[in-house]
Design a protein around this nucleic acid. Structure first.
Lengths: 204, 204
DNA sequence: TTTCGATCTGGACGGTGCTTAGATAACACC
DNA sequence: GGTGTTATCTAAGCACCGTCCAGATCGAAA
């Protein structure tokens, strides 16, 4: 429509401030952590007044949600790449490694998802992480799995990796990581031990 | 040392303000949600000036941590009760149900744990939730499980229930809950499906 | 009784999310 | 090209936040 190149000598009207605000938010998140992610800081980073963002987002929460949505998009991208490059067996590892590589973003993502009690949906199936998990499970089951079991299993899998993504950062896990020779090995080991605890569920 | 009964006509020196502040924090969390949990609101609720809490907690974070620690104590208590009343097979259910019964508290608990990157330890083993999980797993395995496998399995179990506690609140799960006839049934079903997704991990 | 240290108040500082009023510039139309 | 319309941005201000400080209050040791 207009874009005057989005640079050079602040032309009062920014051109694409919405995009610039999202970029600024990501910069702040990665540089200063999620606590520093204030609306005013984002505006400052983008070089505009504190009130400017309100013409592009209804409130702070809406900006955060947009950041979160972008984060989920990137997460799903990482998962899709993992399937393409290493097969569906690496899905869980890719998930946890994304969360560890972008801890502040991951936190903002779930903070938003929690308060909205909703999960950013991706329009195309091949870019929806949960859909990828379902496909992997269906493939592993040789197609012989009904829809209900598939849904429940996918949620169980998502729960496991999300829980592990959060818990593995606690210092309680540090000795195990060292023992196993690195975070990656630790994550793999835990994910492979997930079925064992189910034994305690069967025997009652 | 002194306690003048902690009631009746504000005697300038409160008597046990520290305890009163923690109680006030819990009241606010349950009544107004985690976003309303400000230091000033806690002081207001306890009927003291905004600066009073600083004589009992170094800063807001320290107050939150105390609340979180209390929360983990109650969670572990709930888990211990579940084992006593229904056997170790109900541990996961008890965990998720606690998180759902106290959503705001649960959120504060993990917010604190995350920022400290540490997990409030409980001094006595019989009151440590992770210890309960280990015992349940060891019992289910008939004692034939080495220490490493036990640790990894316990972390996998904790990851699953923590993840499920968060994810099951998303509206994506609502249709499944309805289909299965309630949240409790849904949680049980997901926990029982956890092993199936592991199939996708084996076949590579 | 005097002193002392712990506890609490009132007031202040900078930072926050958000609102309102007004300045600025890009666009659509004549 | 001149005109008005509309979206965008700024400046100023509101109430609230976490935190600090000087001083009032009080319990207990000396």
């Amino acid at each position: 429509m207009h874009e005057p190149a989005a640079a050079a000598a602040k032309p009062y009207h920014h051109g694409d401030l919405r995009r610039a605000l999202l970029d600024a938010a990501l910069t702040i998140i990665e540089r200063d952590g999620p606590a520093a992610l204030t609306l005013r800081a984002v505006a400052r980073e983008a070089g505009v007044s504190p009130a400017a963002p309100y013409h592009h987002f209804h409130d702070k929460n809406e900006l955060m949600s947009a950041v979160a949505k972008d984060g989920f998009r990137r997460l799903n991208e990482a998962m899709a790449n993992a399937v393409k490059e290493s097969g569906p067996g690496e899905l869980g590892l890719a998930y946890v490694e994304f969360a560890h590589a972008n801890p502040a973003l991951y936190r903002v993502m779930y903070d938003c998802a929690r308060s909205a009690e909703t999960f950013p949906e991706q329009s195309e199936k091949e870019h929806d992480g949960l859909e990828l998990v379902k496909q992997a499970i269906a493939k592993a089951a040789g197609g012989k799995i009904n829809e209900l079991d598939l849904e429940l299993t996918a949620i169980a899998a998502w729960s496991s990796v999300h829980g592990l993504a959060e818990i593995s950062r606690f210092d309680k896990c540090a000795p195990l990581k060292e023992l196993l020779g690195g975070e990656r090995a630790f994550i793999k080991a835990v994910l492979e031990h997930a079925p064992m605890f189910l034994a305690t569920k069967r025997e009652h």
